[in-house]
Design a protein around this nucleic acid. Structure first.
Length: 512
DNA sequence: TTCCGACAGTGGGGTCGCAAT
DNA sequence: ATTGCGACCCCACTATCGGAA
């Protein structure tokens, strides 16, 4: 199949807002794909490369190349070139990569270049990714969408399921069963603003501590243990102590879901930055493990001794978990019968925060494990802080925010009467706010280029955030975690904004 | 008819590893 | 030795579509 066909379909998908129409367009294309094209066409139209990331980003792609006049590239040829390019390493590889990208781009028409650019940077912006492609695949093969979805979650990959479906038909879906050693997309949580809101929604529930570490899925089959992240990357080699812990459990075959986190000598959780740095270390694992040892803490079990537990209610899965995993390696929890039991839930949150953890996750006791979904039966609750900060500058947005000032630079007052930038945010604004701030900030502009508009520091904005973290980038030595706009405070003057001093005082555990 | 679940989009900061400088 | 880039951890929030209630 020619690449130009994909580029055109992608453009057509982007041009329609109706999801049903996007699905139909995808289905038509998938039906026409030859067997050998399937493993390429499906991920491409889901906005991803089959080989994952290539080590090519916006920088390399921004070198403009004269486009070809006629579309001649086939998807298989593109795939072969990208595969070769992704394998490069060592001295000179960056230059060679850039050269090969240029060669590929010069064989592509302007239209194809745009499609390839989006594909390689992971920003196709066609309003359809995995979930919509999955629906298109179901329509193309006349398989029940729910069955396709389940197979994809269990395979951890749309591509494998697509290949099976298009070659062997809907009955091939039965092949995709929960298997020890093959990672499953993990269940995710929604956010609730308070414990009472969460308990009201869920009724009988477990309130569990939320640890600020790295999600891990542990597979053990006899002596073999594999560890996977939330996106199913294999991190077994980086965490030998987690493997050792899994081998000590009194079970032979299982899949566990939990969090990896580092505790200090007093048993307090280390900061997310420290845990994440440790989990990210690959070059000298032994040294890293000695300096910052991590522990797994589990909260769910998906499989035991060949039994698939996904569809069991959480209460029964937890009973299995308790049989397999001793207490200190399990997340702390409180059982709550419902709204009348709220004080217990709130007390548990207070205790958990006191132990230095992030918050809690409230889980319905009767819910199955919804792999790959942000199920409404898990609700996380974290304390939210707010500050009144001053807008120092704003950056022009992209995509649907083109032409709008979007990303705000936020400053807190300093002792000398100036402002120290604490970070940026683009979150929390409605379209109306974007329109308003674009107008207002341009009135306050003192300097402006293609990227950023610097303004007089006069506009006060209320910012919600999850906490402070250390920063080498910003002048105060700290930055806000997950900052988002709550509202503009036109009733406040910049002299009334919060100071760096009060911010640091509010978070004594974080030192610049 | 209204409500709500699921998706996609829009990017944030930090850290590590690797290649280039 | 330092710098820049890309990958991958963590993530909040809004708009929109379309099925559920």
């Amino acid at each position: 199949m020619l690449l130009t066909r994909l580029a055109h379909v992608s453009q057509e998908i982007a041009a329609t807002s109706a999801r049903s129409r996007k699905i139909t367009l995808l289905a038509e294309l998938f039906r026409d794909a030859e067997a050998d094209d399937v493993p390429i066409v499906i991920p491409y139209l889901a906005g991803r490369l089959p080989q994952g990331r290539l080590g090519i980003g916006w920088k390399v792609l921004s070198h403009q190349v004269e486009p070809a006049a006629e579309p001649t590239l086939t998807v298989r040829e593109v795939d072969a070139r990208l595969t070769a390019l992704g394998k490069l390493s060592g001295p000179g590889s960056q230059a060679e990569r850039t050269r090969l990208v240029g060669e590929l781009m010069s064989a592509a028409t302007e239209h194809e270049q745009r499609f390839l650019f989006g594909l390689i940077t992971g920003e196709v912006r066609q309003g359809a990714l995995d979930a919509v492609a999955m629906e298109g695949l179901a329509q193309a093969t006349e398989a029940p969408p729910a069955d396709v979805r389940r197979a994809v979650m269990l395979a951890g990959s749309l591509q494998q399921v697509a290949q099976a479906l298009l070659t062997d038909g809907p009955q091939s879906l039965a092949r995709f069963r929960l298997t020890v050693g093959r990672p499953v997309l993990p269940m995710l949580a929604h956010t609730a603003s308070s414990v009472s809101e969460a308990v009201d929604k869920l009724g009988a529930c477990a309130v569990e501590e939320k640890l600020d570490g790295i999600r891990v899925q542990v597979h053990r089959d006899g002596d073999s243990v594999r560890l996977y992240t939330r996106t199913l990357d294999d991190i077994t080699d980086r965490l030998p102590e987690v493997t050792a812990a899994a081998l000590e459990l009194r079970g032979d075959r299982f899949i566990l879901d939990g969090e990896v986190i580092s505790f200090d000598s007093e048993g307090r959780p280390r900061s997310f930055q420290e845990t994440a740095g440790r989990v990210g270390s690959r070059t000298d694992v032994a040294k890293a493990a000695k300096e910052i040892p991590v522990s797994p803490v589990f909260f769910d079990v998906l499989s035991v001794d060949g039994r698939d537990l996904l569809d069991l209610p959480f209460s029964e899965r937890h009973a299995e978990l308790a049989r397999l995993v001793p207490e200190p390696m399990r997340v702390r929890r409180a059982l709550v019968s419902g709204s009348e039991d709220l004080p217990r839930a709130e007390g548990f949150l207070t205790e958990t925060l006191g132990r230095g953890h992030e918050g809690v996750v409230v889980k319905a006791l009767d819910a199955p494990y919804s792999a790959g979904r942000r199920g409404a039966s898990w609700l996380k609750v974290k304390p939210v802080h707010t500050l009144d900060l001053v807008v120092l500058a704003a950056e022009w947005g992209h995509g649907r925010r083109t032409g709008k000032l979007s990303n705000l630079h936020l400053g807190a007052r300093t002792a000398d009467g100036g402002f120290a930038m604490l970070g940026k945010t683009f979150k929390g604004m409605t379209d109306a706010m974007l329109t308003w701030q674009t107008e207002r900030l341009q009135q306050l502009a003192v300097r402006s280029d293609d990227w950023v508009v610097t303004v007089r520091p006069e506009l006060v904005v209320e910012i919600a955030y999850d906490g402070l973290q250390r920063s080498t980038r910003y002048p105060a030595g700290v930055t806000l975690r997950f900052a988002r706009v709550v509202r503009y405070r036109e009733d406040k003057r910049p002299e009334e904004a919060d100071t760096v001093e009060t911010l640091l005082a509010a978070h004594p555990e974080v030192r610049p």
